[in-house]
Amino acid sequence: MAELKAPAHLIEHVQLVWEAGAVLLKKCRQLGLDLDYSLVELGIAVHDLGKTVHTVELLGPGHRHEEEGQRILLSRGVSAEVAKVCVSHGQWERMACSTEELIVALSDKLWKGQRVDALELQVVDRICGMLNVDRWELFTDLDSCFEHIAADGQKRLNKSGGT
């Protein structure tokens, strides 16, 4: 981020997404999930890196930053697995994603209080599959975790200037 002269707003965004992600990762650890926790942490840190080039997307919609972030990371020798998160966090509905990538995408929604049923259900189903349990055995617990994170969304949005 420093090398690419990331604006303070982008760094702050990453920190706020990290707050949401940290709660999700804590829940995953409590459940004993065998995840690549480092991939989730790195993914959160770099998911919007392409916005250092496509700065108009810092405060507005757009997807050009996704491919750009992946390109930047690959050009700097970062693994394809980490670089893919730049694309998958915004295109999780249209591509095959790892559980770790889905958790990054979910963190990027929940930080601002946004609930996305389809994404949440994918995460729930992945976790249940990893633990070999029925969706309804964990749904309420995971849904409560998601709601807990989302409930602080307005507070995080206020910290970020409302965007």
Rank of each mutant, 00 (worst) to 15 (best):
M1P: 01
A2Y: 05
K5P: 02
K5L: 08
A6Q: 10
P7L: 09
A8L: 14
H9P: 00
H9K: 12
L10A: 11
L10K: 02
I11W: 02
I11H: 07
E12W: 04
H13P: 03
H13T: 06
H13S: 03
H13F: 04
V14P: 11
Q15P: 02
G21M: 01
V23P: 01
L31R: 05
G32I: 06
G32Y: 08
G32W: 07
L35A: 04
L35M: 14
D36Q: 08
L39R: 07
V40C: 06
V40Q: 02
E41H: 01
A45E: 12
V46S: 06
H47N: 04
H47I: 03
D48A: 05
L49I: 14
K51C: 11
H54P: 00
H54D: 10
H54K: 15
V56N: 09
V56I: 03
V56D: 11
L59V: 13
G60P: 00
G62D: 04
H65Q: 10
H65L: 11
H65R: 02
H65N: 10
E66F: 04
E67C: 00
E67P: 03
E67D: 09
E68L: 01
E68C: 12
Q70A: 13
R71G: 01
R71E: 12
I72G: 02
L74S: 05
S75C: 08
S75P: 06
S75Q: 11
S75W: 04
G77T: 09
G77I: 07
G77H: 13
V78L: 08
S79L: 09
A80G: 07
E81W: 01
E81V: 06
E81G: 00
A83T: 09
K84M: 11
K84S: 15
V85K: 05
C86Y: 05
C86L: 06
H89Y: 14
E93R: 11
A96H: 13
T99A: 04
V104Y: 06
V104P: 11
L106E: 02
L106P: 12
S107G: 12
S107W: 07
D108L: 08
K112R: 09
V116N: 04
V116L: 13
L119S: 14
E120H: 12
E120S: 09
E120C: 11
L121K: 15
Q122I: 00
V123D: 00
V123Y: 01
V124G: 02
V124Y: 12
I127V: 11
C128W: 06
C128P: 15
G129I: 09
G129R: 05
M130G: 08
M130S: 08
N132E: 06
V133M: 02
D134Y: 08
D134V: 14
D134H: 13
D134P: 09
R135Q: 15
W136P: 00
F139K: 05
F139N: 12
F139C: 05
T140Y: 05
T140L: 12
L142S: 14
S144P: 01
S144V: 06
C145V: 15
F146A: 09
H148N: 10
H148A: 14
I149W: 04
A150Q: 09
A151Q: 07
G153K: 09
K155H: 11
L157C: 13
K159R: 13
G161S: 12
